[in-house]
Computed example of a mutant assay.
Amino acid sequence: MIDRTQLSVFITTYNNGRTLMACLESVKWADEIVIVDSFSTDDTLAIGQRYGTQITQHEFMGYGPQKRMALAATTHDWVLLLDADEALSPDLQTEIRRLLEHKPTADGYEIPRQEQMFWRMYNPATRMNHYLRLFDKREGDIDDRPIHAAPKVQGRIARLKAPLYHYGETDIHTKVEKINAYSTGLVADKLKKQRWGIPLIMLFYPPLFFIRSYLFKRNFMNGWAGLINSVIAAFYVFLKYAKLYEHHQFAKHGTRLLPDDAPPLPSEYQSESADKP
């Protein structure tokens, strides 16, 4: 009998009832599934219980700390990180199970992610992003990035071939809401890095990012959905630096650029020290 490597799957959730069933269905064969939930109010918990997952609830601490808490709750050395709006393709399930049966030869594995892009899935010819998701936790942890916290591993990284499906951006409204929230969340991180030349970055980087997305990553293969996605992605890049620039302007001017008789409305970026005297 083959001494198979056991696998723990860990997931963080908050009101993911719409996508969680597909996620859990794709990993129900795993030896353990751990969920850390941020007090969902929909049917997320009921779905998790239906699949026999180990559920812990904790108030949201940030993406990195929340994922680290879920990772710490796993009991097996080999772990797979999934978002609640992701699911393993059938081919990926087979590829991972065979890998675990014959013992992993690397310390971590990157997986290509095939996105649902509004009304369609990525054309397979599109260049997909690869994400480190399957790894030996004795050699890795979750990094401290404020939004896109992800595993980091000391050791050899290999790539799997079959895709992970992502249902995070099922319509334009959802994608725009997400980039608005993410770009705001990244301001504090960029302040720590003391970015310079922000106006020039706002002017030149978004068009270059559009070209990279639409041409070099072959988003043109996705028709109008690919064009719309690339435009929104370039706007996301613009928003990150525009909000950083806005922060600096509030810190510099406060309300001094408003008319003297205009009652000022507060901003989350406004510095009290820069208010009108």
Score class of each variant (00 low, 15 high):
residue 74 T to F: 05
residue 83 D to M: 02
residue 161 K to I: 06
residue 181 A to Q: 10
residue 218 R to V: 02
residue 118 F to P: 00
residue 6 Q to E: 15
residue 32 E to F: 06
residue 52 G to R: 04
residue 93 Q to D: 08
residue 63 Y to A: 12
residue 121 M to D: 03
residue 220 F to W: 10
residue 202 M to D: 00
residue 161 K to V: 06
residue 13 T to V: 13
residue 221 M to F: 14
residue 225 A to S: 11
residue 77 D to Q: 06
residue 166 H to I: 09
residue 172 I to F: 01
residue 30 A to L: 00
residue 265 L to G: 05
residue 158 A to S: 15
residue 55 I to W: 08
residue 105 T to E: 14
residue 23 C to K: 10
residue 88 L to T: 00
residue 209 F to G: 02
residue 210 F to S: 12
residue 235 F to G: 04
residue 215 L to T: 09
residue 160 L to Y: 07
residue 273 S to R: 07
residue 24 L to R: 04
residue 175 K to T: 11
residue 175 K to W: 14
residue 157 I to V: 11
residue 126 T to E: 06
residue 268 E to M: 07
residue 246 E to D: 05
residue 272 E to M: 11
residue 214 Y to A: 04
residue 68 R to V: 08
residue 18 R to I: 12
residue 223 G to V: 00
residue 44 T to D: 04
residue 45 L to C: 13
residue 133 R to M: 09
residue 272 E to W: 10
residue 186 L to Y: 12
residue 139 E to M: 13
residue 277 P to I: 11
residue 132 L to M: 08
residue 167 Y to K: 06
residue 108 G to D: 03
residue 61 M to Q: 15
residue 37 D to E: 05
residue 52 G to D: 09
residue 252 K to I: 05
residue 71 L to D: 05
residue 2 I to L: 08
residue 167 Y to V: 01
residue 197 G to K: 07
residue 250 F to R: 03
residue 254 G to E: 01
residue 16 N to Q: 07
residue 44 T to A: 03
residue 174 T to Y: 07
residue 66 Q to I: 08
residue 208 L to A: 13
residue 228 I to C: 00
residue 145 R to I: 11
residue 126 T to M: 08
residue 65 P to L: 04
residue 6 Q to R: 15
residue 175 K to Y: 15
residue 110 E to R: 11
residue 30 A to F: 01
residue 198 I to S: 03
residue 195 R to Y: 10
residue 182 Y to K: 09
residue 233 A to K: 09
residue 245 Y to H: 08
residue 219 N to Y: 15
residue 8 S to A: 13
residue 127 R to P: 08
residue 220 F to M: 02
residue 61 M to T: 12
residue 202 M to H: 02
residue 31 D to E: 15
residue 268 E to F: 02
residue 70 A to T: 03
residue 196 W to R: 15
residue 33 I to C: 14
residue 213 S to H: 03
residue 208 L to T: 11
residue 75 T to S: 11
residue 70 A to Q: 04
residue 88 L to G: 01
residue 270 Q to D: 12
residue 184 T to S: 12
residue 259 P to Q: 03
residue 19 T to V: 05
residue 117 M to Y: 12
residue 36 V to A: 05
residue 169 E to D: 14
residue 68 R to S: 15
residue 114 Q to M: 06
residue 28 K to H: 14
residue 220 F to G: 00
residue 17 G to L: 10
